[in-house]
Design a protein around this nucleic acid. Structure first.
Lengths: 210, 210
DNA sequence: CCATCATAGATAGTCCCACTATCAGATAGC
DNA sequence: GCTATCTGATAGTGGGACTATCTATGATGG
């Protein structure tokens, strides 16, 4: 198909598609003449993925580029690819402050307590420590008391995610599943948590009138 | 204290503080003379909250303004205040597409199935529907099979959140707890989910070497 | 009392990001 | 031939979050 149809099918403007090609988010079409290029379903699929990551996942263009780079090289061992895809999916949280050291300890303690086989000083652990440090700085350090309930929930979710993702027919789909599951899954989880909040709050504070 | 000390204590640059005052995120200091104003701990607390919402929560300045407006008027019934705080915390997801209708039905079915007392067409429900529609468009509609595992986890988390937040000494703290819990809690949950993923993935795909 | 410093308030500027517009030259398809 | 569409390139736009500069004024310390 030509770029116009690709645009029509995905709802992405033609100049935007060209922009994504320039930015390396999308491979260029196969040139059939100096001013005609052919795009196929892989382009369409990739373009939908890019839009999903940007719109629903809230990723920046450069973050998408990094993630896709990890998806790309399927030569490396699977868990390495997953790992780097995962790392680049975790936004860097440059949160400083006096509380950070204590928060890091809390993270390490949590990881040890749960017996998680993961490095507490990776991107995810740092992000968690940053969030906890912020909570402490806001006088909400007591929030950490419910951390184990969160951990229970996360174990449950991770198991469900793996179950879904494990059904992938090949490595490429597997990695794509991880990316989608992580990014869009975050959005799903966040939205659903709000629904559950509303429900729990309605039960507790009795909003029977509306 | 004067603006310089407020800046030193919070690590926020003086012009940025002024900018926040202009934008209505922070009340102005009490003028003691035409060119001197006095700031107290409430300013410091608010400023830390603003920074947390922006840095860790990833909220925009205008989103912070909306949220704070909801926090502000504590005259209204508690559950209304919580509701509007909550609504303004949910980013609008303008995801269109053919899949949206089906995704909305899936959300409604989920809400009915779980017996949640919440409107499936509120901001959170729409966000969830948008995410599900995106998944469908990416060929990951099968993800919806694990939705109930997510729902289990969310119920657990919501209960924990309510437990924490219910300890607030007054209405203002309660609402602030909801805001912080929702926004920073999202970051906590997202980071922790990644940790759990790494663990689950290590167990499954055996990354004993690193 | 005077030099130096910090401050309020106002306005303008900067930087980055994600697009979007406009062109020139070249087909595609009728 | 004629018109719609395309490639590839460059320049421009609009929004967001600060940041710099300036003036007039007052605080502070020797």
């Amino acid at each position: 198909m030509r770029i116009g149809e690709l645009s029509r099918r995905t709802g992405v403007a033609v100049p935007t598609i060209k922009y994504y090609v320039r930015e390396g988010l999308l491979p260029a079409g196969r040139l059939t003449s100096p001013n005609q290029a052919d795009y196929d379903e892989t382009h369409e699929r990739r373009l939908r993925l890019v839009r999903g990551l940007i719109e629903v996942g809230g990723l920046s263009v450069s973050a998408v580029r990094e993630v896709l780079a990890a998806v790309e090289d399927t030569d490396r061992p699977v868990h390495k690819v997953l790992g780097s895809a995962h790392e680049s999916l975790t936004p860097p949280h440059a949160v400083g402050g006096a509380e950070l050291a204590g928060a890091r300890e809390a993270v390490a303690a949590l990881v040890a307590r749960r017996g998680w086989q993961t490095a507490p000083d990776g991107a995810a652990g740092e992000a968690l420590a940053g969030a906890l440090a912020t909570l402490r700085g806001l006088g909400h350090g007591g929030f950490e008391e419910v951390l184990d309930a969160y951990a229970d929930a996360c174990e449950r979710i991770a198991t469900a995610d793996l179950t879904y993702v494990g059904r992938a027919p090949d490595v490429e789909r597997l990695v794509e599943g991880v990316v989608v599951g992580t990014v869009i899954g975050d959005a799903v989880l966040s939205a659903m948590r709000r629904l559950a909040h509303t429900d729990a709050s309605a039960r507790r504070y009795g909003a029977a009138d509306d």
